[in-house]
Write a protein that binds this DNA or RNA. Sequence first.
DNA 1: GCGACAG
DNA 2: ATCTTGTCGC
Length: 422
Amino acid sequence: MPRRRSLHATRWDSIRSPGDQDKWSRLPMQAFPTITISTIIAVRSHRAGVVRFESPGYFPLVLLSMKQAQPCGTGLDSVLFCGGASADVSPSLDIPELPDLEADLRALIAAIPAGKLTTCGMLAEALGDRAAAVWIGRWLQEHAHHDSCHCHRVVRVGGVVGGYARDAAFKLARLRAEGALLPDGSWNPEALLPREVLHSVLPSPPLAELRRWQEEVRRAVRLQPLANPPEYLGGVDASYGVRGEAVAAYCHVRRSDGQLLESIVVRQPCRFPYISGYLAFRELPVMLAAVSAARRAGLRPDLLLVDGAGVLHPRRAGLASHLGVLLGTPTVGVTKKLLCGTLPQGEPQLPGAASPIVLDGETMGVCLRSQSGHARCVYVSPGHLVDVTDGATWTAACFPRRLPETIYWADRISRQASRRPG
DNA sequence: GCGACAG
DNA sequence: ATCTTGTCGC
């Protein structure tokens, strides 16, 4: 009997009492400046013959940033999931305060005067990384523009004015009226806003700051063999609802037979966009919440598989490394596409086979083909407290479908939950 | 010049 | 990641 007994009814019953809900609503939120609030939307046992726990309502979940485990002592720790006891977490790194990139982007665009122009790439540079250009381009296409906004002054490289939400003609007319166009209809290169102007709007570019934090994570990462063969494997993945809210699922799988034992789903608002290389800042909060909730329910994986890269990352600090460092637990990153690195031997051909992935002349990951020999491989790299070999070995241990079982279930369950209303 | 670029 | 129709396969 199972270690899983900790997911018994009593603990959850205490959470469900109306009195506790009241306590929650009276909690002074100002007391927790960097707190992340999540909602548990499902806790399930998947073992046949075992009572299934379905949470009927939504419970608040509070994840304190790691340095702030103190406020748990308010007597609410039976109600709130406070990131666990302080011994659970590595106190060395704190979750950084996330910038409001959309507000920063609006500020940059507002700073483009009439008659002047800029490009997505230059705006991205001003935010701190050219990689943000893709998101900016999409934002400009989707965001509802007003007569007073300056979004029409963002053009494409090479003279093409480019789209503008659904009204390219309006954009063209305004630019012509502002004198930024040449007679042939292309935009005037001399109208380009100098870099310094945008730089002065955001003297400390937010993405550059986040990069500095990634370097801290990189320094904290330890790649080492796993002490013991893992008995339980965890998997986390995130999906997004129609209103953009993030939903994460943690799935607990028994390594010996690959069976899904338990799952936990949490939800929280999400403001940070997807930018290649910065996925951690989009998904870390909701994933930390899911894993913390799992911990409080007694689910402690010996190895956590994350849907995202580990050290196979431009700064060797992918999502899985962030999770590992913040939780102080062994993590492995698993992706469906390669973010960086090369395959000197190509992809493995045989079912269940592996081939190395090299980054900067060093084997930093492994390409795995499933035991069923699926056409598409996965790309595995250690996140933290595990090495390349062990990470790949235990990822391959429960891998009968296209994705490792942990990731398969987390993907499926989070997606299903994100499509539900609420 | 064009594509690539975890989710 | 999400948006979508039909289509292929077990």
